[in-house]
Design a protein around this nucleic acid. Structure first.
Length: 271
DNA sequence: AGAGGTACCTGGCAGC
DNA sequence: TGCTGCCAGGTACCTC
């Protein structure tokens, strides 16, 4: 159930176990993910060394000398480090095997995830070329958001969740960041002042960083006995808390639907 | 070009 | 207990 902080936590946890290591073998048990897993991955990757693991939005990129392995966790995906002879469960679709009996395993019950091969340069690939600004990088400012909002009228929550505008902000963090900024999720982006754009950018950044910091505590377990990366619990102020008291003012949190997704907000704090 | 809806897939849970 | 329907943290792609 990965949003950006979980993808980033996964990336950091993987780094020491994967970067600089050579792929011994590739196992595709079920190629039917969001798109078919390419059939030539084994040929491409055997004997190749992982140079780096990067993140773009929620996409993970494993850099190899001759190209890039793109991994997306979709809605239900998880990467874990396991022994290469670990028992295989129903939804273990893909393994990248390294030496010392280690394997990086993709588990994804809903199969909305993806494993693709991207030739150089990865950034030109259609999945990456249209992505919006990275919320944890310098270019992510109130001004940048305001400029991207020009000529639009969508509700600010849907704007935040649009990957071509901002990449990596999913439903939970859109809800939480808007609460942090005191902005109503239904507010049109054409009706947000400069100061509030600044506050929103800062709130998105703070919310994501807090979740990443919380995730750091689970990193220790990353290569643990079962190799599973635990889901860290973000302390949600509004998400999933319909009818419960707002942590700031005590008013009842409300839930609505926006574009087929659940939206939660405090009707008193968010205007 | 922007906005909105649909599709992909499995599992968990509430309600009957 | 077993069925049905709904919901779930993503996002590309389609139409209007």
């Amino acid at each position: 159930m990965p949003e950006l902080p979980e993808v980033e936590t996964t990336r950091r946890g993987l780094l020491p176990h994967v970067v600089g290591h050579t792929v011994n073998d590739v196992v595709v048990r079920n190629p039917n993910l969001r798109w078919p897993v390419p059939g030539d991955l084994r040929r491409r990757l055997r004997g190749e060394k992982v140079l780096a693991v990067r993140r773009r939005g929620k996409y993970l990129l494993f850099d190899f000398p001759k190209g890039h392995l793109l991994v997306h966790l979709g809605m239900s995906g998880r990467l874990s480090l396991v022994r290469d002879d670990a028992p295989v469960e129903r939804h273990d679709h893909f393994d990248l095997q390294f030496g010392a009996h280690r394997a990086l395993r993709l588990t994804d019950p809903r199969r909305f995830g993806a494993v693709l091969w991207l030739p150089d340069p990865a950034e030109k690939h259609t999945l990456l070329s249209g992505l919006g600004v990275e919320p944890l990088e310098r270019g992510f400012t109130g001004l940048a958001l305001q400029e991207r909002a020009r000529g639009r009228s969508v509700a600010v929550k849907q704007f935040l969740m649009n990957g071509r505008i901002v990449t990596g902000v999913g439903n939970i963090y859109a809800n939480e960041a808007l609460f942090g900024a005191g902005i109503h999720p239904l507010r049109s982006v054409s009706r947000i002042s400069r100061g509030r754009w600044d506050r929103l950018a800062e709130s998105v950044r703070a919310t994501l960083n807090r979740a990443i910091d919380a995730g750091g505590t689970t990193l220790r377990d990353f290569a643990g006995a079962d190799g599973q990366l635990g889901h860290f619990q973000l302390q949600c102020a509004v998400y999933g808390r319909e009818g419960k008291p707002c942590p700031r003012c005590g008013a009842k949190i409300r839930a609505i639907r926006q574009g087929q997704r659940s939206t939660f907000f405090c009707p008193r704090c968010q205007k």
